[in-house]
Amino acid sequence: MSGRTITRAQLSEAVYQEVGLSRNESADLLEMVLDEMSVALVRGETVKISSFGSFSVRDKGQRIGRNPKTGEEVPILPRRVLVFRPSQLLKARVNEGPVGRQLENG
């Protein structure tokens, strides 16, 4: 794996390059996108981004877990978890990339 990490800085730079807003406004727009998605998810809505993937929220009931270090049984409280399902296109692109190719070659 190449091991590079992309952050907000590179994403808002790409918006800046692409649309020609100021750097500040580009950063604000990125934040608004993440904010709108978060608000929808917190409401329990599914967020579907065509050709990228969908984010949804799943309710999980209480179950018994185990502390992996001590082996002690502890109840895991009910919770809402976020599930991301990548689109077929994104899955295919990732497999055609360096990580997928590396796996193919053993």
């Binding site: 091991g3 590079r4 992309i6 918006v15 990228f52 990339g97």
Partner: peptide, 20 residues
Amino acid sequence: IVSTIFDEVADALARGDRVE
């Protein structure tokens, strides 16, 4: 703007990069 953001994330993953 919206397409650029998701395209950049997808491009990064296709390269094997992480997006945080």
